[in-house]
Design a protein around this nucleic acid. Structure first.
Lengths: 193, 193
DNA sequence: ATTTTTAACTAACAAATGTTAGGTAGCCGA
DNA sequence: TCGGCTACCTAACATTTGTTAGTTAAAAAT
């Protein structure tokens, strides 16, 4: 496989940070170069193009979400437990890859075709894992009979937003955040006892 | 007050659509002009600058959210009912102003200072209305004792995402969507009876 | 009938953007 | 010691960008 030089790793890490902070379009190649304290043209020793950089980040991040959540999705556990664990795992990926996750969740839209459509498909496949477990829960009469797409979108939007507010230096561990979110979404805000 | 000519309304409506579809930065003045079938420079008969256009849209949309939700926030109803109605109202504004809401929710970040900071403050004040009613519910021991900021962010992110998937030509009315969302968030996905 | 306003135009601008060409100093393995 | 590789440089490029200047034809107001 292709080994990734240490310097290229720095380029990628800086790009992740800037793309997630300011957005892909608002980050110029010169901004990125300045953050690395080199000239803009020098970036092209490490990277083929600005969009290739975005693509690489998006690609690797998608891999990580799949690698973390897919095993849980395929495991044999009861439905409630499975959804809980998937939420916790998903949130964990976000919290430990805040910058890259922002690309997975938002900035991928700025890929150009055909990559953009391919990526949208990949994201849809990812979300289908959540959709499937939710459908399962509905069929088992364990989950409420909302439209299955509605429930999926509501849960995903609530947990995805984590990437905008989670701070690694805060007091909450990623796991605790995931537990709180799954508990909230499964049981609701209202006290029942 | 300043009357807004019919043509300017068209410019604004088209800008709302393009800014929300492709994003503010990805929409050039020439894109906008082409959609209106005029030359780029002609836009400046109607609008002072591209950012002024963004600003106007963001400003009016914020007004609308406040005008719709603030009266409910200030009303004397029990806490659960108040939060429910606020969610429904908020979702209703989104669903009936999909394009402008996308600016309120996302694209305002591309305002330049000091407008950006002012707008962020305004949004924070808006969200504070939700935060307050949630705190109230916690104090009344009616809502679960999650961190108040956590609950607020979770609810808002779930309901804000509506703007990406709601279709006016679908079968759900905005009110029904709001009811489903508030029911989901207050009671959770799990069946209890 | 004359003036003013409106809404468009053409032409051009400076600045910013992503990118390429071609070069150079230092390091590493043979 | 030599050749090639790495990581950067300067200079320049073609486009795209938001915007201004100045003009014009038609409509509205006086």
């Amino acid at each position: 496989m292709k080994a990734i030089s240490e310097r290229k790793q720095q380029v990628i890490a800086t790009a992740e940070r800037l793309f997630s902070e300011k957005g892909y379009l608002a980050t110029s190649v010169r901004d990125l170069a300045e953050a690395l304290q080199i000239e803009a043209a020098s970036l092209y020793s490490h990277v083929k193009s600005k969009e290739d950089l975005l693509w690489g980040i998006a690609d690797r991040c998608a891999d990580q979400f799949f690698a973390t959540v897919e095993p849980i999705s395929a495991a044999e556990v009861n439905t409630k437990e499975k959804l809980t664990q998937m939420i916790i795992a998903h949130v964990q990926v976000i919290c430990t890859n805040l910058a890259a996750s922002a690309i997975f969740l938002r900035e991928w839209r700025h890929l150009s075709e055909p990559r953009k459509s391919e990526y949208a498909q990949r994201r849809a496949n990812y979300e289908k894992m959540f959709r499937n477990v939710i459908r399962q829960g509905i069929e088992e009469n364990l989950f409420k009979h909302y439209d299955e797409g509605f429930s999926t979108r509501t849960i995903l939007s609530a947990i995805n937003w984590t990437h905008t507010w989670y701070r690694p230096d805060g007091e909450l561990t990623p796991e605790k955040v995931g537990e709180n979110l799954s508990s909230f979404l499964l049981n609701g805000l209202i006290r029942t006892i």
